[in-house]
């Protein structure tokens, strides 16, 4: 439904510019969820903002149902905005504290296609609130009167009010308590089923992404390092970074493992040539000096017999870097 090809987003210009998103190609299927996973500095939030038109695109293309929307003017036009919406991370700052819930909802409904009378807009606002589990009593109240979870539901209702086809969910549960997260995730799943929505689910929380997504893409320093069906990416990861993520992730059913990766994420402004991960890769030139190709060539996503593609020079073999990583790691 939404196609990104070689998409790049840059901050600043000239020598001081930072390429936050580097030649990303993704497909967001209709009626399904694409999970976008990455840690801080991976560029996932930048990508999310570019998709909804808050940032300009420096290279590549964006196509919605085949129609090109690369120019920022195209992504800020009402036609696009009616189909692509966003829910933000922090429920405490994504709602205007000076507008009542009713005012915010009526404003959102008003952005829908077609002319609605004032009465109709009010009724639709109530309907949108009811679909997220809130009622008409919320209309006159102000955001500060609601809890974090409730505010997030209001934010979802507002995005829904426009009747979009795709909603970008940017870390929507990261600021919520664990017990509330599940409620919101269930709500999102129900809404997806009911309205046939597509989601781009952006999060640093791998477990949550694995529960919500059919397909997953893993980002590191602005690039996609692995993508494919969720079960394959998380169950049989082929890129060393994905493998490191899975190993670092605490779980209730296994014992602690030693940190698989050393060092910190390099400064995105001063990226070394070659693969962006080679400075920390447990099976890269740090531990295996013969793998000098990692220092010279930037790996592309490589297809193989497995459904998930990984951007690694040594992921081609079946089981790819996995078996080698298991062997190399003490």
């Amino acid at each position: 439904m939404l196609e990104l090809r070689d998409l790049s987003v840059r901050y600043g210009s000239g020598r001081r510019s930072l390429t936050a998103v580097d030649r990303v190609s993704l497909d967001i299927p209709s009626g399904a969820t694409l999970g976008l996973v990455g840690e801080s500095g991976s560029g996932k939030s930048t990508l999310a903002r570019a998709i909804v038109g808050l940032l300009p695109i420096a290279g590549g293309s964006v196509r919605l149902d085949g129609a090109d929307h690369t120019r920022q003017a195209a992504r800020t036009a009402p036609a696009y905005r009616r189909r692509v919406q966003m829910v933000f991370q922090d429920p405490h700052s994504s709602l205007n504290p000076r507008m009542s819930v009713g005012q915010a909802m009526v404003e959102a409904v008003g952005k829908r296609e077609g002319e609605l009378s004032r009465a109709e807009r009010r009724a639709e606002a109530v309907r949108a609130l009811e679909s997220v589990g809130l009622g008409a009593t919320a209309l006159e109240r102000y955001p500060h009167e609601f809890s974090g979870g409730q505010r997030q539901r209001i934010a979802i209702a507002r995005a829904l009010a426009v009747r979009p086809q795709l909603i970008v969910l940017d870390e929507v549960t990261s600021a919520l308590d664990v017990s509330v997260q599940a409620t919101i995730l269930n709500l999102l799943t129900d809404l997806q089923r009911e309205f046939g929505l597509s989601y781009l689910f952006v999060s640093h929380n791998l477990s949550v992404v694995s529960l919500m997504s059919e397909a997953v893409a893993v980002m590191y320093l602005g690039r996609i390092v692995e993508r494919g069906p969720a079960g394959d990416v998380f169950g049989r990861p082929r890129h060393p970074y994905t493998q490191a993520l899975m190993k670092s992730l605490p779980s209730l059913s296994s014992a602690r493992a030693h940190a698989p990766v050393v060092g910190d994420v390099p400064d995105p402004r001063n990226l070394p040539p070659g693969c962006p991960f080679h400075t920390r890769c447990p099976v890269g030139p740090l531990t295996r000096p013969d793998r000098s190709v990692c220092l010279e060539q930037d790996p592309q996503l490589v297809a193989s017999s497995q459904p998930n593609e990984a951007a690694c020079h040594f992921a081609a073999a079946p089981g790819g870097a996995a078996s080698e990583a298991a062997g190399a790691h003490v």
Partner: peptide, 23 residues
């Protein structure tokens, strides 16, 4: 964020400045 959220909704120009910033 609420200003960005309004932009994404399609609010622009005077309503954006008045309702979201000035208020």
């Amino acid at each position: 964020d609420y200003v960005d959220a309004a932009r994404v909704l399609g609010v622009r120009g005077r309503p954006l400045v008045v309702r979201y910033v000035l208020r």
